[in-house]
Design a protein around this nucleic acid. Sequence first.
RNA 1: GGGUGCUUAGCUCAGCGGUAGAGCACUUCCUUCACACGGAAGGGGCCACAGGUUCGAUCCCUGUAGCACCCACCA
Length: 923
Amino acid sequence: MLDKSFDPAAIEQAWYQRWEAAGYFGHRDHAAPAYCIQLPPPNVTGTLHMGHAFQQTLMDALVRYHRMRGCNTNWVVGTDHAGIATQIVVERQIEEEGKSRHDLGREAFVERVWRWKQRSGATITRQMRRLGASANWAYADAEGQKAGYFTMDARMSRAVAEVFVRLYEEGLVYRGKRLVNWDPALGTAVSDLEVDTEEEDGRLWEIRYPFGQGEGGVVVATTRPETLLGDVAVAVHPGDPRYQGLIGKAVQLPLTGRRVPVIADEYVDPAFGTGAVKITPGHDFNDYQVGKRHGLDPISILTLDAHLNDAVPAQYRGLERFEARKRVVEDLKALGLLIAEKPYRLRVPRSGRTGVIVEPMLTDQWFVKMEGLARDGLEVVARGEVRFFPEHWTATYNQWLENIQDWCISRQLWWGHQIPAWYDDAGNVYVARSEDEARRKAAGAALRRDPDVLDTWFSSALVPFSSLGWPEKTKDLETFLPSDVLVTGFDIIFFWVARMVMMTRHFTGRVPFRHVYINAIVRDAEGEKMSKSKGNTLDPLDLIDGISFEALLGKSTVGLMKPEHRQKIEAYVRSHFPAGIPAFGADALRFTFASLASFSRTLNFDLGRCEGYRNFCNKLWNAARFVLMNTEGKDCGLDERQPVALSFADRWIVSRLQRVEAEVEQAFAEYRFDNAAGAVYRFVWDEYCDWYVELAKLQLADADEASGRGTRRTLVRTLETALRLLHPIAPFITEELWQKVAPLAGKRGETIMLQPYPKSQPEKIDAAAERDMAALMEWTAAARTLRAEAKLPPAEKVALLRTADPAVSDLPYASRALCALARLSAFERRNPLPESTAPVAVLGEARIMLHKEVDPAAERQRIAREVARLEAQLARAETKLANPSFVERAPPKVVEQERARVGDFQAALAKLRDQLGRLQARS
RNA sequence: GGGUGCUUAGCUCAGCGGUAGAGCACUUCCUUCACACGGAAGGGGCCACAGGUUCGAUCCCUGUAGCACCCACCA
């Protein structure tokens, strides 16, 4: 016997362990069609958040669905070393010990990061398991931890080196001194994508560059006065009349004693500022281009940690860049060269990682040449070999690839794949798969390895094939590439999706995946971005296990970057979770995610809905409880030779089941998880529980042997099928219940996971049964409404009189059902209805009357309201039909339908007015 | 500057060229032998605004406003 209510904690852990131990998650190397999903490998920087849980729910639902459909499923999972992010996390830890990574040295530091990685990786995989992820943990598991691959494990590293070497040999990877985005806090280059440009309040300074001693000059506008120390020119627009005479002349560069030329370049916008621009090719991307066009060499004035270097006059050397700005402005002011200082909104490039202002810096870096790769990446999408869901994300993808720059892949960090390039003393470079190979190439010269590491996304880009064993020609590559769908966030379309397409195409000739499902971004219930500093983050495990208010508050306010947020966070937690969070269980959480997964771009996570779906789980649990109570140990019609009688209700629920099966199939095919979840929800609750179970109670109470057998068989089989239907979304509860229900339906199996997924059988759709049930439901609802409006106590049974019969094929059965469902003492035919003040309603051809005298005034009011409602509807319909162009041009079906409605309204109105007349006569 | 998405019930969201929907919240009644994490009956919407197309627009088109996001080298 099942417990009275569903307790997720009692079943989840046990089932997961059994599934995993039994090896159900693994792929089977057989003839079945392959179904493969690549997990976006989570960073080993911490724990999973709601976005991960959401994404993984969808992936798991897809994988479980296809596994049950007989596919050879392989959900390839792993974790990402996340270069910069992870290095930062560990550096912070070391800082708390009062040390820096330089105190440890590179080797010891990397050792330390590995230790952290083990811990964080374990947390992540534990969370995924709690969520029920049926991931192929043992696959590509180089480290024997049943956690999939790690992007820095030996196998993945080998693929990285191989790719790097091949790209170098093809001329697609090159090294060069270029202006790159430099994060001075981290001391590394970052890619364009890792720079966030935000509008901020700043100033615009206007500075005079004199022609010579005291005779006027050119006024330039700048937001960064300190960079004038690195200026090589002043540029004006070639057509600007103000400056025609100056082009080719020289001006005095303040504070330096240098003279720089005035040059003409189209880049200058004469309408902006003063129309004259200082040119600093060493620290500005535009100026770099201008300098190149005019043969002016850049001057670097900054050290790698953003202090002024020896290229500037002595009094500024060693100053930090913002300190330098102050000093430069003061000195200019003192010299009378500062013409104006205005407040100004400017776009400030900040490092996505550290938030410090990024400095364009001239450094030696490695790049990937993108042009050809990008063109191919665009083509495969244009040809439909890779499709985005929702489709509009294609535009975003295209836009980026159409304007792509070469990719700076070197990072001046310690944590990551060290670049497989070696230098000899003469400065020659040897790119090789290993030091041995490099040595052979270098023919005995002393070698020094490039200290830099690769951008994390370099190895991520290879995952679709490196995880399947590339560069070996493996069977798995053959089977699982391309994977079927990539489920990921829009924020990494550029970082990851596009780069996977390009790399996978280049090295395998295949696309990495056929579909890209871009999932919504998870926000809080008010649509605010979840962030630790607001206190509105949710830990998926807290929703599964529940958490007390005190514990939640403690968690939310621990380890804050800015302690001043504490009060705000506390207020948020206090108002949103005054009683903490109840334990909803993994199934309810998953069901919530699925229900909210429409094609909208954000997902506002609503605790109320999670609660609603927890209730749904409980409803399902109790439906199963009812079924078991009524079928265990009884004849459920397993013996096909025994006679079975099926009522229209039995045939109806079976018919509806076929429809919901078809709906769910379509929903999964379209990645409309909300529709899949909604279809099952409505079927289980609104149809099976609300109607079928209630009717089954009657059928069991007064059934003969054959119909009892039929009812029990239908109860059990329908439930068993619904469990399989729901399993991909709610794996735990369905497994638990299926184990008990399935044997009664004659099914055997160790697990529901590997049972066939229900398939709609259109021949079981029974139009007659559906029509009968629709009539019964309509009559029941009408009778109940009359009762409620007459304020009858539930215990009081009255008779319902009718002028005509409900249009059902089995009237005696329907009458009995109606009496039970609407608590009627009798259901009698009486035409005409007796003169009475009793409440009357119109149902198609029939009038029905509760056999109960009520206050005539109240009843008149009720009917008058109904008359008014019908009159309004009638008027609308008649207006339509009075319009000749409607009748002529609308489809005949629509016109016909409208005419029928008018007829119905008129008939109903006539009957109601008739009744109204009687009531008036009696008062 | 270019691009994308959104605006529907108090809240969070579906939907659709022809009678406006769900969950939660709300009102009334009910502890009936699966379930109060429940049952029954209700209330609640100028579908952002303005034009256009159409017999008919919440839906298609154009524009406006507001919100959000992405990309981009104006000092």
